[in-house]
Computed example of a mutant assay.
Amino acid sequence: MPIITDIIASRLPLAEEEIGPRHPGALYQNATGAYEVLVLVTDPSEAAQLLRCDSARWAVIVRDVLRADGEPFVTGAVWTSEDRLVRPGRAADAFAPAA
């Protein structure tokens, strides 16, 4: 019989599923704004530090392009069916740790 943590871990979404198509350079839109992806951070310790939480698998630094004063900010919000990709980013650099 599998251990409960194994069952829970097997049902957790992959980081790539949570990130979705948010690679550097991508533009996506949802009900709250339209965002350009500036940096994708996949190093868990760096992501946790940026998000100011105990644990995180990834983080995305974005800028709201609909706001004239749109300053870059960090988010850990997962990709959902409400998000729409407007312009794809550069997938080749997507999962390299941010410097």
Rank of each mutant, 00 (worst) to 15 (best):
V74S: 02
A47P: 05
P44T: 04
F73E: 11
V41R: 00
S55K: 15
Q49T: 09
S45L: 10
Q49V: 10
P72E: 00
L50N: 04
A47M: 12
L40Q: 07
L50Q: 08
V65Q: 04
Q49D: 14
L40R: 02
E71D: 06
V60F: 01
A68E: 14
V39W: 05
R67S: 12
V62S: 01
D69S: 12
I61V: 15
E71I: 05
S45E: 09
A47L: 13
A48W: 02
C53M: 15
C53P: 05
R67H: 04
R67T: 04
A59Y: 00
L66Q: 11
V74K: 08
R57T: 11
S55N: 09
D43Y: 01
V65I: 13
R57E: 13
Q49I: 10
R63P: 06
S55D: 12
V62Q: 07
L50T: 06
D64Y: 00
D69T: 14
I61S: 03
C53I: 11
A48E: 11
F73I: 07
Q49M: 11
I61D: 08
V41K: 00
D69Y: 09
W58K: 04
S45R: 06
D69N: 15
L51T: 05
V41L: 00
S45T: 14
D69K: 14
L40D: 03
P72F: 01
V41M: 03
V74A: 02
R67N: 07
L50Y: 12
R67W: 03
V41D: 00
D43Q: 06
P72K: 01
C53F: 07
D43H: 03
F73K: 10
A68M: 14
E71V: 05
W58H: 02
A68G: 14
V39A: 07
R63H: 06
A59Q: 05
C53S: 10
W58Y: 13
L66K: 06
V60R: 03
R67Y: 02
T42H: 01
C53Q: 15
S45A: 12
R67L: 15
L51H: 00
R57M: 15
L40G: 08
T42W: 01
G70C: 13
S55F: 10
D43T: 09
W58G: 01
C53Y: 02
G70W: 03
E71R: 09
A47N: 12
E46R: 11
V65K: 04
Q49Y: 08
Q49N: 09
S45G: 08
L66G: 09
R63V: 14
